[in-house]
């Protein structure tokens, strides 16, 4: 059971030391994270993924997106997520890195 609870959440760490504990199920929307946890690498053993090239601010937004996606995964007519204009470029790159695909009704 302990393992179950442990695996239910995972910790994402940004390059400036911010740690985000997210619902594993939500984070698995990213194929990158999925691949990370599937193979017997360090991340899968520790449940902790470190991203040395992503800042805490961006990672926070990414985590927001994971949960946004998770909350709305079965719904239709979902309102757009708020994206601050100044973060657009960085977020685009992050999305690309995480292999995220456009959600239903959303365009990149």
């Amino acid at each position: 059971m302990a393992e179950d609870t442990e695996n239910k959440y995972l910790t994402l760490v940004s390059n400036d030391g911010f740690e985000f504990v997210v619902l594993a199920e939500a984070a698995l929307v990213s194929p990158t994270i999925k691949g990370m946890l599937r193979s017997p690498f360090v991340e899968a053993q520790t449940n902790r993924c470190t991203f040395p090239e992503i800042s805490g601010v961006v990672l926070e937004k990414v985590v927001d997106y994971f949960h946004y996606w998770y909350r709305n995964r079965d719904k239709e007519n979902v309102p757009d997520m708020e994206i601050p204009a100044e973060m657009c470029l960085e977020l685009l790159m992050a999305a690309n890195y995480f292999n995220l695909e456009p959600g239903p009704g959303q365009a990149w």
């Binding site: 193979s39 360090v42 993924c49």
Partner: peptide, 15 residues
């Protein structure tokens, strides 16, 4: 011997 490798590290290399 993959257990000591960081997926993120390798992924980022190929990325």
């Amino acid at each position: 011997n993959a257990t000591d490798l960081s997926f993120e590290n390798l992924y980022r290399a190929s990325y």
